[in-house]
Design a protein around this nucleic acid. Structure first.
Lengths: 255, 255
DNA sequence: CTTTCTTTACTTACCGAAAAGTAAGTTACC
DNA sequence: GGTAACTTACTTTTCGGTAAGTAAAGAAAG
């Protein structure tokens, strides 16, 4: 019933086996923590639960990390490193702004889909952090956001991107990608490549059927037959079911 | 220092004034709760804090609501009602799929931006809810999602929308809109109308400069001079600052 | 090679704070 | 006086974090 995370490495598979491998164990803590944080949120995840998943006790965690916040911040840092590495690989500095945005979207989306830590950056609420730590995380995030906005402005200048509000456009694109973490399931029917492709297609070319497309750019079309489209719930005319009337003290509940 | 919510109505401005107006007070609880939930999350918001903002004591809240969860669920319900009302207003049943999507985007974005409860639906994590309640909320949310997906599929059939993966496209659009709640500030420089307009423009027409646009459709262009573009942080070449070395037990922290 | 000492890597048992929720008493209006 | 609308005082649980002790793996000494 309980969904076990399929983590290959298990440095704590038995408490008898105590290899001296602090780096590996730190990594294991972070990866398991990221899993739990993404599954049920930062505050909902207790240190005891995290320890239990690792087959150790809670104070052992405090041997590797000073406190809970340090764990989540390290997840953020690794995620941002993953994302920026992906962005760096994908970009060609002499390309037009439009192409940079496209590369950005694919790289960012891939990082968010494929890496747990990338998803941490996208999804985890930094509101639970202390003031100083939150400042650091926000500044790192803002750097990524500002990069995208810069590319959009670049593209508007060089004529490859239509006139628009770069700030809002950057927010919209980042939002669409960050949101992936809420619906994407690693074992699900949608592959990372397909998601990245569709995202860059939608966000750069739009939904609108282009009657007369510019000749030099051809949007990649996707063969729908190969996408595993699962049957999904359609809009049902069910009435909004009120919460089941619990017999107890119903005074004050006016309806 | 503390950011006070500017709520016009204050049914508890003094505990001396005890009017008999249970409906209004319930509303005040919900609105204040929505404010706090959006500001700092559901779990981080305590019933005591909510009570304090309303100038009452914690048990008084339990006079109007059975428990904390009932409050947040009611926020969800009202938000969904707001969104579906907006959707209903904006839609013309005989329009093409593309135009329905466009209307959907504008209506949904407006609901999320303008209404606290709408933002609750978009932003609040339903992971903290109990199993039965979560099922209800998810089913309501899914209905909204499925509506959008239906419009996209419709548009692909009637030829107004380019061939794409409707499922992913719907997720991307919903994600971009839902994410508004993380960056939008009610008093900020961006107006609801502008956000709605830019969103529908970006998501339906894309960023790409259209060299030869279909003649019968003209994308609304936005005058950039009227948008208050604030100066924003640019990508700085600062190094990733590690957490300040706290002198205490540094064993085990390998670097 | 054995004994002892040191460090690593934990464990058990506990503390204090915070937070959801309750019991029972109190005030003010009709 | 009766009921609506609260308050004060309390219980229980959960959770982050700590104090103190301990088993195992080397390193050093004899």
């Amino acid at each position: 019933m309980v969904k076990r995370p399929k983590i290959a490495m298990e440095p704590w598979k038995s408490f008898q086996v105590r290899k001296r491998n602090p780096d590996g164990k730190r990594d294991a803590v972070l990866l398991t923590a990221a899993h739990l944080f993404l599954e049920q949120g930062y505050r909902r995840t207790s240190m005891s639960e995290l320890a239990k998943r690792l087959n150790i006790t809670k104070p052992a965690l405090y041997y590797y990390f000073h406190n809970k916040e340090e764990i989540v911040v390290e997840c953020y840092r690794r995620g941002i490193a993953v994302i920026e590495a992906g962005l760096g690989d994908a970009l060609v500095s002499h390309a037009a702004g439009f192409d940079k945005v496209k590369a950005y979207v694919e790289a960012y989306a891939t990082a968010v889909v494929l890496h747990e830590f990338g998803r941490c950056v996208a999804m985890l609420d930094d509101g639970a952090l202390s003031a100083t730590t939150r400042r650091e995380v926000r500044s790192l995030k803002r750097r990524i956001d500002a990069t995208l906005r810069g590319y959009i402005e670049e593209g508007m200048k060089d004529g490859s991107i239509a006139n628009c509000n770069a700030k809002i456009a950057a927010f919209a694109i980042a939002g669409a990608i960050n949101w992936i973490g809420t619906w994407y399931q690693p074992g699900g029917p949608l592959s990372a490549a397909e998601i990245g492709e569709q995202f860059s297609l939608l966000l750069t070319e739009g939904l609108h059927r282009q009657v007369a497309r510019a000749p030099e750019r051809k949007a990649a079309q996707v063969d729908l037959s190969k996408t595993a489209m699962v049957a999904l719930v359609r809009p049902k005319p069910e009435t909004l079911s009120r919460s089941q009337a619990n017999g107890k003290h119903d005074r004050g509940h006016v309806e």
